[in-house]
């Protein structure tokens, strides 16, 4: 857990984010939607579910779906390792786990460095991109949690990628 040195927490126009890595890129989720982060335990596959749905896991007394974000964004699956994390998010009364390569940072990002997604990539992935933040040399893609777990957004992805 580190806070970016340039932006102290008392800057009240900052928003708190959870950062995670996926295929070498840093993504951010608003900390409000993140319920907890866990090591990836046993995942039970669900037959005939969408390809990016890895299965279901038991988390805090609840059985919740786990999405493989790599597959969701159209990349190769990689085996889980010690850094793999399940980020459990809670959006619109739904609880869903997101499998990410690693996740360990909590950061405050000033609102004025968050830019809307550029037109050029507002196509397919723009849907679940809420914004882009530049922190020094670092590029952070801020995700729209609602869209990631939206099934209709899924279908368009499947159609486009096949």
């Amino acid at each position: 857990m580190t806070t970016h040195p340039n932006h102290s927490p008392e800057n009240h126009s900052s928003l708190p984010f959870i950062l995670f890595e996926l295929a070498g890129t840093t993504y951010g989720l608003h900390s409000q939607v993140v319920q907890q982060m866990e090591m990836v335990q046993q995942i039970t596959p669900v037959p005939n579910a969408a390809n990016f749905v890895e299965g279901v896991v038991f988390s805090r007394g609840q059985v919740i779906p786990a999405i493989n974000l790599r597959v969701r964004f159209g990349w190769e699956k990689v085996p889980y390792d010690v850094r793999t994390r399940l980020i459990v998010i809670n959006v619109n009364h739904r609880t869903v786990g997101l499998i990410t390569d690693s996740a360990r940072e909590f950061i405050s990002i000033p609102q004025d460095v968050i830019l809307p997604p550029p037109e050029a990539i507002s196509g397919l992935s723009g849907k679940y991109l809420a914004g882009i933040a530049m922190l020094g040399e670092r590029l952070i893609l801020i995700l729209n949690a609602e869209e990631i777990i939206n099934l209709t957004t899924d279908t368009s992805l499947i159609v486009h990628s096949s």
Binding site: A49, A50, P65, V96
Partner: peptide, 8 residues
């Protein structure tokens, strides 16, 4: 299993 992602 109420989440639409895993309703099959």
């Amino acid at each position: 299993l109420t989440d639409p992602l895993v309703q099959v």
